[in-house]
Every structure is written in C-alpha cells, then in structure tokens.
Design a protein around this nucleic acid. Structure first.
Lengths: 231, 231
DNA sequence: CTCCTTTTCCATACGCTGTATGTTTATGTA
DNA sequence: TACATAAACATACAGCGTATGGAAAAGGAG
C-alpha cells in the first residue's frame, strides 16, 4: 500500500511545510479561537499536518512558542503618534489607547504577554518611546519621566488584566457586582454598599472604554500636577 | 509482612490526616518555596504523606486548590485604616500599600491571584471598602468613586505583576535596562535613550518602593484634580 | 447490639502532556 | 562523489490531573 501523505525524510526544496512564522501563525489562531489551554504541541502539529516533533526544528520548546506569540502582539502594536501638534496629554493618551488595543486584540494571550518577561525583547522596549516623548514635553525631569511612564504602563497592564479575565467567561460586571454587594452582611462595607447602590439606581452602565478613559484622565491630571510642583 | 504505614481504609477518629486547611497550608508552602510549577497533586500528596487521590475528598480538583490559595492571600490582607484623622490622600495610599504588601507576601502566587476571577468571593469584594471610604471623603460623585477605585486597583495590579515577574528571576532592572537601551539601533527611540542615559549618569537607583510611591502620588494628585474640577 | 450508609483513606488505570532519542531522506558544499 | 546538515517522521518515557473502585473505620438507625 502506497500511502499518499506523510513521507518520512527531508522534504524536497521549496516543499518545506514548516517555518517559525507559519508555526506561530497557526498557534495564534488556535489561541484566539479556542483559548490558551487548547494550544498543545500535538494540537499545533495536527493543524499544520505535521509530526509533533517536527516543530522542534524551528522552535526549541513550547515556552519559545509562547514567547513568540507574545512578541507577535507587540509587533502588531502601532502607535499613531499625532506629533507635537496636539497637547502632550492627548499624545500620552493616544499611546496608551494603542497599547490597550493591542492587548485586547488577542484577549486569550493577554495573561501570557503580561507575565512572560522572557519575551521582553528590543521590539518591546522600543514601544515605550511615545510615552517618553509625551512626558518629555510635559516638562518632567528624567526621573519623573521614567517613573510616570512606568505608572502609566502599570495601569494599562492592570486594566488589561481585568478586561481579559472578565472577557473570557462572559461575566457581566454590573449586575454581578450589584447582586454581590447587596448580598453582603449588613454593615460590612457601608461606603461600597452605598456607592454601588447609587450607581445601580441610576443604571450602572459600566463599560471598559469609559473606565479606561477615566483612568487616563486621572493619570494625566496627576502628571500635570507633578510637573507644576516640580518647577 | 505487616508494613507499618499506609493502612488503607478510613482512619480512626481523631487521626484524620487531611483537611481543606491542612492541604492549602502545605500547598502554600510548596508554592512559596519552589514556585507555582512545583505544585502538583502528587507532590502535594507526598508532602502530606498521603495518596494523591485522598486530596479529592477535601477539594474537588486542582483549580479549587489554586482558588483556595488565592483566597488565603486576601485573607491575610489587613488594612490599617488610620481613620478620618489623616487626609484622604494618606488614607488612600495606606490602603494601596497594604494591598501591595499582601500581594508581595507570596510573589509566586501573584499571577494566580491576579488572573483567577473564580477566586473572587465576598472576602475579596469587601477589601475595596477602604478605597471607597477615602474617595468618598475626597468629595467625588458615586461614579467618580467607582472609577477612581478601579483605576487605583488596576495600577496596583499592574505594578504587582511587574514586581512579581521580575522577582522570581533575579533580574536586575537598572543595568539590564541600561545595556539594553544602549544596544538599540541608533535613532530608534531618541527620548528613551536620552532619558535612560541621564538616569544612568546620575546612578539609576531604581527600587520598587519608590516606583510605587511615585505612582500613588500621581494618582492622588490626579484624583484631587478631578475632584476640584467636578465641583 | 446489629445493620447500613457515609466518610476517608489507598490502588490501579486512562488519556493527555512536553520532549529525548533515533531513523530516514533530501539539500548544499567540498 | 562524499559528507555534514537539515527537515521531516516514529517511538518511547516520565509526569500530569483525575475517573473508578475497593478497604476499613465511623456514626447513626433499628
């Protein structure tokens, strides 16, 4: 019996089935479609119609696949950078929005991106430039620029973490929070109960977009205050 | 041959070897000492000198063990809450510091705590009360309190994420960042290069404590500005 | 007391994982 | 033409979470 497929041995020139890029593309698709847990070396090999061990000729191990995926997220990150014609606050916010959007583009990958420090390459380091540009224009010292940029990035990371976690389990914040707070033992967290109650009364229409924007406003106002005081 | 240990069947009264609490305590020790990957059901059972399957009589599966660990972190969280005698800014910062400290207490668990939404119980929800208290005193609207508290928590989460990631691989930020930035292609990220260069010249003594404090300052100043504008 | 259900342990086993090792075949270079 | 290298496949191993079932003590019901 002459089986048509799966010849063993090296493929003819131009018939290579694999490449680092092709593997990562397939992996990204699996993660996007079915979640991070669905990504196994065997599953990945199957979608590429290849033996699992073949993958190891292009990537040293599974951790490298993960790191490669994290890098893809950053590669897709493109800052608009409107230039210095807009106020620095707007420049800063635009950079933050672009970063958040890149993290949102692959929610199943967010945790990986945010936690895998081994994926921090030059590609990633360079992505902070727009924050430094904007903060420089705000009149901050070198140290203040450094610390403020870190603060912004930390906020975005925390926000993205919450957004991604909620995203993949169809968890509706508003009603959940409301019922949860209402069920609390009396007198346990009075301010929380009152505030959430008021929000519920006026229809707590929480969405992540406005939450992110209000965070950016707090941060830019805070940085402006620090800049004023710093002079 | 009558082997002394490992009798099968139910233990005599008062000789139970396991309990949910004992299991979680042992699990926490493993995670603290050897990292999250070292925690397997078999390993956990071994340290408790028990058959792996015995664990399943006290916890339904491994995910429940993880969630239980995350809960332990929040259980250890105690806010000092100096009361209303200090400015609301200080009250807010104290709450944030306490939360950060709780997350730092078990760095190997930080990622789990921050990403496992299934561990969000009443215990956790109540922990936001101090933020609400402080923000209420700042004169914010219900919606502003809600959004500002989220922003603070997001910042702490992002910060803790970075801190935990760096912690467990003896990665020294300052020299790493310096050499990395110096090795960048010329003209690639001019502001970043200049700022980090200046910091390197004056001895970039970065530590997480001061980074966290400067973040808190930016946030409280920003919230104060929003409060002023809100009137 | 006896009978019976429930609880808490142990033993075995299954399907899955990442990957080490070795073989086959084609390529590119000497 | 030889030969090292590269890219595929095949087999196999240790370790994982956990389903299933059995043994023995506990504890309540008659």
């Amino acid at each position: 019996m002459v089986t048509a497929g799966k010849r063993s041995g090296r493929p003819r020139a131009g018939e290579e089935r694999l490449s680092r890029e092709a593997i990562l593309t397939a992996a990204l698709r699996i993660v996007d479609d079915e979640g991070i847990d669905a990504l196994t070396m065997r599953r990945l090999a199957a979608t590429l119609e290849v033996n699992p061990m073949s993958l190891y000729h292009h990537l040293p191990n599974k951790a490298a696949v993960m790191a490669g995926l994290a890098e893809l997220v950053f590669a897709d990150l493109e800052y608009p950078d409107p230039g210095d014609s807009v106020p620095w606050q707007e420049q800063l916010k635009d950079a933050a929005r672009a970063y958040r959007n890149a993290l949102r583009a692959h929610p199943n990958l967010a945790l990986q991106v945010l936690s895998d420090t081994s994926a921090v390459s030059d590609v990633v380091v360079v992505t902070v430039e727009p924050y430094y540009r904007a903060l420089d224009r705000a009149g901050l010292s070198a140290r203040q620029i450094f610390e403020s940029a870190n603060t912004i990035v930390d906020f975005i990371h925390g926000f993205a973490l919450g957004e991604a976690a909620v995203r993949d389990e169809t968890f509706d914040l508003a009603p959940d929070l409301l019922t949860r707070v209402e069920g609390l033992p009396a007198g346990k967290a009075p301010t929380l109960v009152r505030v959430v109650g008021e929000l519920g009364a006026e229809g707590l229409a929480y969405d992540f977009d406005s939450g992110f924007e209000s965070g950016l406003t707090v941060l830019t106002e805070g940085i402006a205050a620090v800049a004023r005081r710093g002079r």
